[in-house]
C-alpha cells in the first residue's frame, strides 16, 4: 500500500507523484493515478437490494461484476445527476475492482511533497482520515483522497469487514 504521499516522503521533495483529478459538485479531488484502471461513461446499473443509497448497484465490466458507488451522494456534494457527461472511474483497490461515479474527470497532475499540505480537522462528511492532504495547483485546491482507506472503511460498506 503505497500512496502518493508516501512516495514523495521517501524520496524527499524531489520526485513528484501523479494524481487523477476529478470534480464532485464544485470541489476538486485527486486520487493516486496508479489506482485507476480505466474511465468510462455511466451505464445502467443493476440495483442491489438493501444497499446504502450511495451504492448505485453493479455493472457488467467485460464479464466481471463491478459495484458502483456515487461519491456525490456519499460526500453530499453536488447534485447526483446521470447524463451522457457522467463519468465512472474504475479503480483497482486492494485487489478489487470498484467503480466511482463523479461529475467529471479533469486532468492528471504531478504534485511534489512540498505542494501537499496536511488537511485541517473539519468533522465534515468526508472524514479527514481519508484525506492524505490538500494540494495546490494553479491557485486551485485539490483534495487528495486515500482511496484504499476510504473504500475499505466500514462506512462505505463495499467490502466485507472481516477482510
Amino acid at each position: 500500500m503505497q500512496t502518493g504521499q508516501e512516495r514523495t516522503d521517501k524520496n524527499g521533495t524531489g520526485v513528484a507523484s501523479e494524481y487523477l483529478t476529478f470534480t464532485l459538485g464544485s470541489e476538486e479531488y485527486g486520487i493516486d493515478i496508479l489506482k485507476v484502471q480505466e474511465i468510462r461513461g455511466y451505464d445502467t446499473v443493476t440495483h442491489i437490494a438493501n444497499a446504502p443509497e450511495f451504492i448505485k448497484g453493479v455493472i457488467n465490466l467485460r464479464g466481471v461484476i463491478v459495484p458502483i458507488v456515487d461519491m456525490r451522494i456519499k460526500f453530499k456534494v453536488g447534485v447526483p445527476t446521470y447524463n451522457e457527461f457522467t463519468v465512472v472511474i474504475i479503480m483497482n483497490v486492494l485487489g478489487r475492482v470498484i467503480g466511482m461515479v463523479v461529475d467529471g474527470v479533469s486532468d492528471v497532475v504531478a504534485l511534489s511533497g512540498d505542494q501537499i499540505k496536511p488537511a485541517p480537522e473539519m468533522g465534515a462528511a468526508l472524514d479527514t482520515d481519508y484525506i492524505t492532504g490538500l494540494g495546490t495547483l494553479n491557485e486551485q485546491m485539490l483534495i487528495l483522497v486515500d482511496i484504499e482507506k476510504l473504500m475499505s472503511s466500514e462506512e462505505m460498506q463495499v467490502m466485507e469487514q472481516a477482510n
Binding site: G63, I65, P67, V158, M159
Partner: peptide
C-alpha cells in the same frame, strides 16, 4: 458469477449473472 469478488455478499442472492 460471484458478486463477492468485488463487492460483499448480498443477502437473498446466490450470485449474479449477465
Amino acid at each position: 458469477k460471484s458478486i463477492e469478488t468485488n463487492y460483499r455478499k448480498v443477502e437473498g442472492t446466490a450470485g449474479a449473472t449477465i
